[in-house]
Design a protein around this nucleic acid. Structure first.
Length: 856
DNA sequence: AGGTTCGAGTTTTTT
DNA sequence: ACTCGAACCT
């Protein structure tokens, strides 16, 4: 490649390379359309590009939007033309392409028509996307609200928004839509609720809700959950939805017994969701596809609005997402907008980083982009600015083992760097200790904790690592954003809010109807359900007239009536009035704007009795759950501040109603992802799964548990395709590292409380010997003896091994007296076979069995 | 109704 | 090994 432009500086030296995260863990709740608070506590302002002035100023403000999702009421076309004419200053372009390589520049300055950017790891892809958005707006004069950028996570969306904000004025940046597919779809469904056939307050069901719904379906069909586990049913249904097969379509091709059963369940499950005015994650996409397919006017409106579409991580899009992108990004075959609308679809991705095949991602979307868009321009970004030559060589050699793959010539001008350390430890505990010690060494040499990360294949591997880091006093954060919302008390609180917004949601109603206990027994609930079924009456309606429940005593009826009245009062506060069919409409003239969302949530927590319940909860002496409710309130406050701020910036005069805020909050909360809770620059080591690591980078990276069955995972080892996806996962992990990379495995791994010997991952053998440094430090664990740091237990166990010769009489706290039959020396995992007098013969691991030697 | 005990499932990855 | 739910008990 002839490239006269100076190469980019290494990523870690570039001022724009590391966007600062913002928000507090784990409550980062900035709404989808809401941008960063203006320089509130973030230092990004210092290196902002000069605020653009002149021609683009006219486009700072989108026309008045009735809702932040609505396209401008005036067609944007005319503006576009004016802007293009008006903008002819050369310096803007120079500014935006400064420091770019030729391929990067080509992608940034591409304006019309489809564009595929095949971007290797660390090749400046995000920079290209953000600069192109800025280029479109500042150089070409595209109104920013005509730009739609899709990212993989909310966090990525937030960072992209922030980086775009550094290149544009804040208002311009805000006017662009930066979102995930799911968040965009959720918003569209709310926006066009009447077209979709859902109330605006519809519920988004998470995995737990889905399980509930599927159980309901199974019960109603009288199908045994033993033979048809809900989880696998959901999986099958989810796959069908990803391929845009509805229940009917699925039923048509269901030939065997299992499929036919699934078809019935799918049908019923759909009914259950509809009955509850609820959608699952897959439905968000599916319903949007249907919306765009069945409502031409909506499609035209959205095509007109989103004339420039950019989709990141395109290798991980599924069929439904492809359909949405295709619908929005295609040129209309008819209609007046032919010239200006559509066709301007830019997708970026890397087939080697496709790691979501298991959830329906279709790698063919990116591989066949050219076939879909024959006039597509293709740009390859192959120079890596992130990693050392050594790390890149290791990654390249590994991924070269994938057969279903096109070769890519990755290269870097970065330094050689140190060898990749490939280290064998004794067991998981020792591995965690070893990694912790190395991280500490790096820290002592001046590497901030925040520059280090530990990756693993499965979440359960985080535990040992966490414990060890905590004991060692190393600050860490863990990418598990949903953990907070998975807590019972938080789910309960959110369930109340959901019931307020969506009276049809019976699943959620029954979740809270007697939580905390208010005298509505299971029998009463059954009676309500029976009556609803028999009379075909919505549950919410029955709750309002409890006297119809003749099977229930007066006291319980009164309790039901009280609950209903309470919920109704909350709805009144929100200005939500039930219509027929149980749907809610917002009373426009209701003057209750002065109740903030935070106040409202506090009211609900108080009136519902949740707060009092957790305040008096004796099983929770630290009042942790109460504190969590408090945190929830803070998160509401934070959300609300940002929500209102964004409306200010958008110049929207009409204040947000309480109902607006409530629905937006519920929507946001339903779509938090694991990495969303992560914060950069918080002085903590980051722990996460390999999947969550996609798109991130760290100077120091440790990847643990390189063992057969874990990486590649045994459940993804049945076909070459699955194995190759596992290898891509390892590739993604390795290529996150900038300077130092450690890959560890352990000789023994404890799973399900059972410690078993392991086999090293085959991926380790695929690394070229010249770039790795292999060590076996397992002996350290045994030598550690009594020196603390995890060695204590093992050394004691090892000593103990000699203390139980066969024939020794021992006492076990549970099994009582017994005699040692045989001892198998296995180091820390030394087992003894013991014949107990009453409990019979058992094999126990000495380390865990609290045996007592009995004399005589 | 609330607390306790017992058993099963857990651990693939996530919007 | 640990957590969660259902069944069982007080």
């Amino acid at each position: 490649m002839s490239d006269p432009t100076p190469p980019n500086p290494p990523a870690n030296a570039a001022p724009e390379a590391k966007p600062r995260g913002q928000g507090r863990l784990p409550l980062r709740l900035d709404p989808v359309e809401v941008a960063t608070a203006p320089d509130a506590g973030n230092d990004g302002g210092a290196d902002h590009d000069a605020e653009p002035s002149g021609p683009t100023d006219a486009f700072d403000l989108p026309p008045e939007l009735g809702d932040d999702m609505l396209p401008p009421s005036e067609p944007a076309q005319a503006d576009t033309l004016n802007a293009a004419e008006a903008t002819s200053v050369g310096s803007v372009e120079d500014d935006l392409v400064a420091g770019l390589t030729e391929p990067q520049r080509e992608a940034v300055t591409h304006v019309d028509g489809p564009l595929l950017v095949l971007a290797g790891p660390g090749s400046g892809k995000t920079r290209v996307i953000t600069r192109r958005i800025a280029y479109l707006v500042r150089q070409i004069g595209i109104p920013p609200w005509n730009v739609l950028a899709i990212t993989f996570t909310n966090k990525a969306a937030g960072e992209m928004r922030e980086r775009v904000g550094q290149l544009l004025t804040e208002r311009q940046a805000r006017a662009a839509t930066v979102s995930t597919f799911h968040a965009l779809c959720a918003r569209l469904i709310r926006q066009y609720a009447d077209r979709v056939g859902l109330p605006p307050g519809y519920s988004i069901y998470d995995t737990a809700d889905q399980k509930n719904a599927i159980k309901t379906a199974l019960t109603e069909l009288e199908i045994n959950t033993k033979n048809f586990p809900p989880a696998s049913m959901l999986g099958t249904i989810s796959n069908a939805k990803n391929e845009l097969k509805d229940a009917d379509a699925y039923a048509k091709q269901a030939n065997d017994f299992y499929s036919r059963t699934v078809a019935k369940v799918y049908q019923k499950y759909t009914e259950v969701l509809e009955r509850n005015a609820a959608v699952d994650f897959d439905d968000l996409l599916l319903r949007t596809v249907q919306l765009l397919r069945d409502h031409r006017d909506v499609l035209d409106e959205l095509r007109n609005r989103y004339q420039y579409i950019l989709i990141d991580e395109y290798q991980d899009t599924n069929h439904a997402q492809f359909m949405i992108a295709n619908a929005l990004g295609s040129i209309s075959e008819d209609g007046p907008n032919q010239e200006s609308s559509g066709g301007n679809l830019m997708v970026t991705g890397d087939p080697d980083q496709s790691i979501y095949g298991w959830r329906g991602a279709n790698i063919r979307n990116i591989l066949e982009f050219e076939a879909h868009y024959p006039d597509a321009r293709i740009v390859r970004l192959e120079q890596n600015y992130r990693s050392t030559k050594t790390i890149l060589a290791a990654a390249d050699a590994l991924i070269a083992n994938n057969r279903a793959r096109k070769h890519k010539a990755l290269f870097t001008e970065n330094a050689d760097g140190e060898p990749v350390r490939v280290v064998t430890c004794y067991d998981g505990q020792h591995e965690a200790t070893w990694v912790t010690e190395r991280l500490r060494e790096h820290h002592e040499r001046g590497v901030p904790w925040a520059d280090m990360a530990v990756f693993y294949r499965i979440n359960s591997l985080s535990r040992v690592m966490e414990d060890t880091l905590r004991n060692a006093g190393v600050p860490y954060q863990i990418a598990r954003g949903t953990a907070f919302y998975d807590r019972k008390e938080i789910k309960d609180a959110l369930a109340y809010l959901r019931v307020v917004a969506n009276p049809a949601d019976e699943v959620t109603t029954f979740r809270v109807i007697n939580t905390p206990a208010r005298g509505i027994s299971a029998a009463t609930v059954k009676a309500i359900q029976a009556y609803a079924l028999a009379s075909n009456t919505p549950v919410d309606t029955i709750l309002g007239q409890p006297s119809v429940l003749t099977a229930v005593n007066a006291r319980a009826q009164a309790a039901v009536g009280k609950f209903s009245a309470m919920v109704q009062t909350w709805r009144d506060t929100c200005g939500l009035t039930p219509q027929d069919e149980g749907a809610l409409i917002e009373t426009p003239a209701d003057p209750t704007h002065d109740v903030s969302l935070r106040q409202f949530v506090e009211t609900v927590l108080r009136d519902s009795g949740l707060e009092a319940y957790y305040r008096n909860d004796k099983s929770d002496p630290d009042q942790e759950r109460l504190a969590n409710l408090g945190e929830l309130v803070s998160s509401v406050q934070q959300f609300e501040d940002e929500f209102e701020l964004s409306r200010d910036l958008d110049g929207i005069e009409k204040p947000a109603t309480l109902a607006d805020k409530l629905l937006a909050f519920l929507e946001r909360v339903a779509l938090v992802s694991d990495v969303d809770s992560l914060e950069a620059g918080q002085g903590a080591v980051t722990l996460m799964t390999l999947h969550a690591a996609k798109g991130l980078e760290y100077p120091v990276v440790a990847m643990i548990a390189f063992e057969d069955g874990l990486l590649p995972h045994e459940r993804a080892n049945h076909s070459p395709q699955e194995l190759e996806e596992e290898r891509r996962l390892a590739f993604v992990g390795i290529t996150r590292a900038e300077r130092h990379l450690m890959l560890t495995n352990a000789k023994y791994r404890t799973v399900f409380g059972q410690t078993l010997p392991t086999i090293p991952s085959r991926f380790l053998q695929e690394l070229p010997p010249e770039v790795i440094d292999v060590e076996d430090v397992a002996d350290e664990a045994l030598e550690a003896q009594d020196e603390g740091f995890g060695g204590v237990q093992r050394s004691r166990a090892a000593r103990d091994a000699g203390q139980y010769p066969p024939g020794t009489l021992v006492r076990h706290p549970q099994f009582g007296l017994g005699r040692v039959v045989q001892v198998q020396p296995m180091g820390a995992h030394t087992k003894a076979r013991i014949d107990f007098n009453t409990a019979g013969a058992k094999t126990l691991v000495l380390q865990y069995a609290r045996l007592e030697v009995v004399d005589g």
